[in-house]
Design a protein around this nucleic acid. Sequence first.
DNA 1: ACAAAAGTGTTTTTCTTACACCCATGA
DNA 2: TCATGGGTGTAAGAAAAACACTTTTGT
Lengths: 230, 230
Amino acid sequence: MKAYDKQEKVLVAVDCIIFGFYEGQLNLLLIRRDFEPRRGEWSLMGGFLRESESLDDAAARVLRELTGLDQVYLEQFRAFGEVNRDEGERTVSVGYYALINQENVQPQLSADYAAHWVPLNEIPPLIFDHSDMVKAALRRLRHRATHEPVGFELLPEKFTLTQLQWLYEAIFGTPIDAGNFRRRLRKMDYLQRLNEKDTTNSRKGAWYYQFVSEGYAMAKRNGADFLLKP
Amino acid sequence: MKAYDKQEKVLVAVDCIIFGFYEGQLNLLLIRRDFEPRRGEWSLMGGFLRESESLDDAAARVLRELTGLDQVYLEQFRAFGEVNRDEGERTVSVGYYALINQENVQPQLSADYAAHWVPLNEIPPLIFDHSDMVKAALRRLRHRATHEPVGFELLPEKFTLTQLQWLYEAIFGTPIDAGNFRRRLRKMDYLQRLNEKDTTNSRKGAWYYQFVSEGYAMAKRNGADFLLKP
DNA sequence: ACAAAAGTGTTTTTCTTACACCCATGA
DNA sequence: TCATGGGTGTAAGAAAAACACTTTTGT
């Protein structure tokens, strides 16, 4: 059955669902296509897999091409393989989602691509099956954010607990009880409080915190598991 | 960037991690390759994607070719795309795991392929990255089995609660407290008790149960969520 | 009557939830 | 001094864990 000759090859693409967080809003980085097919329509950022790179590498390259960023949190979530999902040639696409702290990215993008941050609840219709991809990516993000400390990728190095709460409210689309949310955070000793306050939102000021990944690694080795739900 | 011409096509395969359950043991269906490369070594069952079929279709076809079974629980869990993961030509593989009630399958397999059920804790070294695939599939199965009633796919239509407990013990590799396990089951009113007992394991006999999927669908609509952990 | 699996109950502890409350401070 | 967001505490209840207990029946 599985002989290598005479098999049909297909195009393989990666598409990136790029999440950003800014001013309490969860956003998606979308492009308006300036190439055929479907020129001018909204779409995810994607590209074809090259012979010399892995899927993960391809996703990182595509992301770098659009944002100029490297070292970004990037996770594959699913392959999409319906026969007619794409126009033109048959293409299998592998979906990746990225989490980036939006403040770092504003400037350099849009240079080569017509890229825009779009609030998650105002996503326009997308080409092909890209809307399905977004839905699947969001499901995965919600799951990961509850069980692993990936949310911090969307925040600046220093953040307040209120910002963190806003982030989770944005990810899940529900309000969260501040008291209960903060109690869970209080037990995470890998959240380090800095000697510095953010006073932009209140007179009292909110402490800045920092996620200490080595601390988390240690806690994990000791059997602690991250859990943060709405 | 994303123009359709002059792109490099690659081979796309699907590989199936086929779980079966029999006599308290969780098993994997593996083949000894009777073709090159790596003739004679252990491997997962796989095949190449054809132009006219979706990824899901391809996985179902591969499974049917090996087991003769249709209508099997089959779920994609991840694409594998390292450059040198395969020998010979560059191949991207999409992993699917299947859950089948092993009693239905014993006879017809092995006809064309040298297929064998191997206990999960006695898996031999596998070719390529197939061992990684198995690990990833098992992680996904563990997750799905706790949050969705997929475990029943591995059991006969009629099963006892003790069998179900054995299944979960096998999936998670840990002992489970019978009292607590059964209390959770007792609340699932979509588990229908039949007027029939299994007396092979005890004099008293254990009631047979049946999973009623319409009942589960209704419970789900009413906001109930399945949860069954070790 | 007793062994052995099937099945139920009970107690203890831990985690959630809802919500009231205090704190700090600039205007 | 008071409004506002930041932050803590607590009582009621739900759920998890541990384990003792009862039931059934072939031998």
